[in-house]
């Protein structure tokens, strides 16, 4: 159940995208998201869909895994789509009741919005599946490094460190939560039935032990880090150096073509 959460997990499959510099990947992700939301006609969006599918195929990651992430976001997706459905101002009225009406414009808005969100999830998953959490935080730290000139050096390092640790402990804590759930179930706890208030109350025997163990882990981890001479970001070196290579520019170029394509289709059609 809890083990189904795969978002933020790395998947090894040795594709070109895996090898691309994580800094480039992050910049491109942001760029592509902006352009996906800029696509205002069917052709531009269709082009974006094709591009994203191509990227997904290049990553060599089972498509199934991409859809797994959709499950979690489905309620948000439906909510947004339905909201947009009633938001159409122009177009032919298809359905009308009470003060609400659905127009052709509303339908197309809903379809556009849903497609954009799905693309957003897919493309973000493509980043997290192909980049190790450490590379990701490392890249964020490096991208944000200009901030140190305005006196935020420590903040940038601390943020990156927090992300590294959070990502490292997500699977550990999920496993722990499952163990505690089973232990309480073995003591007759009922987690599946009952009214909402009862169910919320039933979470206490799980959340308290989980919280206590997280605090203990945090304390032990802090000691272990101290023993490994951790002293903040000052004077640290990194084993992995990031250098832009030829293929990084190829990926960059390809992405710029996608953005250009969306823009052109937006204007021409």
């Amino acid at each position: 159940m809890l083990r189904d959460i795969t978002f933020g997990q790395y998947y090894e499959s040795h594709s070109v995208i895996h090898k691309t510099d994580p800094r480039i990947k992050i910049i491109l992700l942001i760029l592509l998201i902006v352009f996906i939301f800029l696509a205002k006609n069917g052709f531009a969006l269709g082009f974006a869909v094709l591009s994203v599918i191509t990227i997904m195929l290049i990553t060599k990651i089972p498509i199934k895994l991409y859809f797994k992430n959709m499950k979690a976001i489905l309620p948000v997706l439906i909510f947004t789509a339905v909201l947009n459905l009633f938001y159409g101002e122009s177009g032919r009225v298809l359905l009308s009741f009470w003060k609400l009406q659905i127009t052709t414009d509303g339908v197309s808005r809903a379809v556009f919005m849903a497609t954009r969100i799905i693309l957003l999830i897919f493309i973000s998953s493509a980043l997290t599946y192909t980049t190790t959490p450490n590379d990701l935080t490392d890249a964020i730290e490096r991208l944000l490094s200009p901030l140190k000139f305005i006196g935020l050096k420590n903040a940038v390092h601390t943020l990156a460190m927090m992300m590294t640790i959070a990502l490292r402990f997500i699977p550990t804590l999920i496993e722990e939560a499952e163990k505690i759930m089973n232990a309480q179930k073995a003591r007759g706890a009922d987690l599946e039935n009952g009214k909402l208030t009862e169910r919320v109350k039933a979470l206490i025997p799980i959340l308290i032990p989980l919280l206590i163990s997280s605090v203990r882990r945090a304390y032990e981890l802090a000691e272990a880090m101290e023993c490994r001479c951790y002293n903040g970001g000052e004077g640290r070196t990194r084993m992995k150096q990031m250098h832009l290579k030829g293929r990084d520019f190829v990926v960059l170029g390809a992405s710029l073509i996608i953005c250009g394509g969306i823009l052109t289709l937006n204007i021409l059609l």
């Binding site: 590294t164 550990t172 032990e220 981890l221 880090m225 490994r228």
Partner: peptide, 12 residues
């Protein structure tokens, strides 16, 4: 220390 899980900082 005792618990290996609580000494490992990175995911690789």
């Amino acid at each position: 220390f005792q618990n290996p899980d609580n000494q490992i900082i990175a995911s690789i």
